[in-house]
Design a protein around this nucleic acid. Structure first.
Lengths: 247, 247
DNA sequence: CATTTCAGATACATAGCCGTATTGGGATAC
DNA sequence: GTATCCCAATACGGCTATGTATCTGAAATG
């Protein structure tokens, strides 16, 4: 439609080199796709809709991607990259655990503006990955890295409070990480039942609770239960071993 | 294809009354749709695929539903109903909180067999609801009921341990509920990083931690932080009020 | 400038899906 | 047993998406 629009998009420099033009197109297609995927889902979005929103025609699309599948791959790659950068950034310039909590709180506040569409896209991508055997490991790896960063932060947090974690930090990180996802879902479904700071508040509550437990681990009347006793196998997550009922 | 298949489906009784036949068809269409939605998503599934898997033709479909939209509605209704029944059942025949934890553990064990497809369908339905303004309140209501049941159970749990909850049980229920979702997602993405009992273990850990916190609320070196102080507004969830930094 | 190259537009052929209109055959009613 | 009803199958028309093949004009190259 507007092949000249590229020239307006750049400020002064020159008209636009070919490579630049190509990259810009690719980026705009990805952006349009991201929006549409959030709105109507991956398979609810046609290639024509994507190029229309980006201001191109199908020719541009097939010149840049083999098909929708490859575009989704590229989008997943891009978003994964960004997410990991955000996490690194977050934990990099935080001195203490409480620092990091502050950063996390403001991160979630910013995120809250567009929580619905953000989460929808994220969810679409994981569903897509779930259905493609080649992609699932990629997702798994991303989650693992996130959890690893979280685990490190938690370790720091316990050190700050000079208590020992009541369970392997990897397990606690899994819990905290999952909590972020789950609470976000709940917030999108019914915002009136939660709060912009719910995630941060919940995590702080957990941290205080775990610290309390670490200081005061065996409260008498719970000894009757087959209490876990800290897991000796560090690599494995689940702390509890129950006596079996069937012989 | 096999209009006579209905007769084989019933055991002895009679050939099949008309109404029965109709209901059976509807049910089979719903079942087929549920499977396909989990496999390929709602909009990734065509009406033809649905009727093909159910063993009918499109005529049967449009005789029973106005279109795919109405089928999704019916499916959501059905699944919501079942889920709430399961929850009620779970909490009904559990005497104590620990009882309920046992039931929940075995529930999650059973669920684990088909966790992937179950969660995929569930997720597809919530994404669908998210995009339909009429449906979102339905989802919200379902979640609210689940959380309410959970809150009640938690209340019982704290009573069993004779401690006061460290935050409104509604908030704790939100946390526990979200945790269930989040951990399930993580488990589907990378089963090797979690465990079949992770959800139950995590919840038990939380319960012990919260009990510990309730018994030992103010651990000295944390007083410097703007500690929440239990929320006075019971209806609202988030416990923490922070001092503002910008004037 | 003249020529080549290539990003993106246009044109086209094909396939799949949707929804309705019609038909057939087994249940229901008399 | 015959007539009626109605559930599901079949047939049809229209629409939309896909992918390729071809074309155009602006950048790169000399």
């Amino acid at each position: 439609m507007y092949p000249t629009a590229h020239q307006e998009a750049i400020t002064i420099t020159r008209r636009l080199t070919r490579q630049q033009s190509r990259e810009l197109t690719r980026e705009q297609l990805l952006q349009a796709a991201a929006e549409l995927f959030a709105e109507h889902g991956v398979s609810g979005t046609s290639v024509e809709q994507i190029v229309e929103r980006a201001g191109y025609t199908r020719g541009a699309f097939y010149g840049n991607f083999e098909g929708k599948h490859e575009l989704v791959l590229a989008l997943l790659e891009q978003r994964t990259q960004r997410e990991l950068e955000e996490i690194q950034e977050l934990s990099r310039d935080a001195g203490s655990f409480d620092d990091l909590m502050d950063h996390m709180r403001s991160w979630y506040r910013r995120r809250d503006e567009t929580l619905g569409s953000w989460l929808a896209l994220r969810t679409e991508l994981w569903l897509y990955g779930l259905r493609d055997p080649k992609l699932l490991p990629v997702l798994a790896d991303r989650e693992r890295r996130s959890r690893a960063a979280l685990a490190q932060a938690l370790e720091q947090g316990f050190a700050d409070r000079s208590v020992a974690p009541p369970a392997p930090v990897e397990f606690l990180a899994l819990v905290v990480h999952s909590l972020g996802d789950g609470l976000s879902i709940q917030r999108v479904i019914s915002p009136e039942d939660s709060d912009i700071d719910t995630v941060a508040n919940a995590i702080e509550l957990l941290m205080r609770s775990w610290s309390a437990l670490a200081r005061n681990p065996a409260p008498a009347n719970e000894a009757s239960r087959p209490s876990p006793g800290h897991p000796t196998d560090k690599s494995r997550m689940p702390p509890i071993e129950k006596p079996e009922k069937n012989p």
